[in-house]
Amino acid sequence: RTAFSSEQLARLKREFNENRYLTERRRQQLSSELGLNEAQIKIWFQNKRA
């Protein structure tokens, strides 16, 4: 289980509010910017949509 920092969570929530689905390219960008792997971001979005 991933423990996200408050900064990472704030960024993910802001991104989710703008778009509930990420393109592969956007997921790669977020992964690089947040220091998370793409799978972690993908799962976070899946869980948030559920």
Rank of each mutant, 00 (worst) to 15 (best):
S6V: 11
N37G: 11
N19Q: 05
W44T: 00
A39Q: 14
G35S: 06
G35H: 07
F16D: 01
E7W: 11
T23H: 04
L30I: 07
I41K: 01
Q29P: 01
A50F: 09
L12D: 01
T2A: 09
R49G: 06
R25W: 08
S32R: 14
R20C: 10
A10Y: 06
N17T: 09
F16R: 02
Q29T: 08
Q29E: 12
N17I: 09
L22Y: 02
L22E: 04
R20Q: 13
Y21C: 09
S6Q: 13
K48C: 10
T23V: 03
E38V: 09
T23S: 13
A50S: 09
S32N: 08
K48Y: 14
A50Q: 11
K42E: 15
T2E: 13
F45K: 00
E15Y: 05
S5R: 04
E38N: 04
R25V: 12
I41W: 03
G35N: 08
E24M: 10
E15T: 03
N19D: 08
K13R: 13
L30K: 00
K48D: 03
N37I: 05
N17Y: 09
L22T: 04
W44P: 00
R1I: 13
A3K: 13
E15G: 02
I41P: 00
E38T: 06
E24T: 13
K48N: 10
Q8A: 06
Q46P: 03
E7P: 04
N19M: 05
Q8N: 03
Q46R: 12
Q28W: 06
N47K: 11
S31C: 09
Q40F: 11
W44S: 01
A10T: 07
R14E: 13
K42D: 15
L22R: 01
I43A: 12
Q40K: 06
A10S: 08
S6Y: 11
S32V: 15
Q40W: 11
R20Y: 06
L12C: 03
E33R: 03
N37E: 14
A10W: 06
A3C: 15
L22M: 05
K13T: 15
N17C: 12
L30S: 00
K42C: 14
E7H: 08
A3G: 12
I41R: 00
R26Q: 10
I41T: 02
R49V: 09
L36K: 01
R14P: 00
L22W: 03
S5A: 03
S5I: 03
L9V: 08
N17V: 08
A10Q: 09
W44R: 01
N37P: 15
L36Y: 01
K13D: 15
R27A: 15
G35K: 06
E33A: 05
R1Q: 14
A3E: 14
K42Q: 14
Q46S: 09
N19Y: 06
R20E: 09
F45E: 02
K48H: 11
A10G: 05
S6T: 11
E7R: 06
R11K: 08
L12N: 00
Q46G: 06
L9E: 12
Q28A: 10
N19R: 07
S31R: 03
W44K: 01
Y21A: 05
S32F: 13
S31Q: 05
S6N: 10
S6F: 10
E18G: 05
L34V: 04
R20S: 12
L9C: 11
E38L: 05
S6C: 15
R26K: 11
E18Y: 07
F16V: 02
R1D: 15
I43V: 08
S6W: 09
R49F: 09
Q28K: 14
E15F: 04
Q8K: 03
W44L: 03
N19C: 13
R20K: 10
K13C: 15
I43Q: 13
A39P: 04
A10H: 07
A10L: 10
N37D: 15
K13I: 15
L9P: 00
S32D: 11
Y21W: 10
E7G: 05
N17D: 12
E7Q: 08
G35M: 06
E18P: 01
K48G: 05
A3T: 11
L12A: 00
A3M: 11
N37S: 15
A50T: 08
N17H: 10
A3F: 13
R49M: 12
A39W: 15
L22K: 01
E18W: 06
F16I: 03
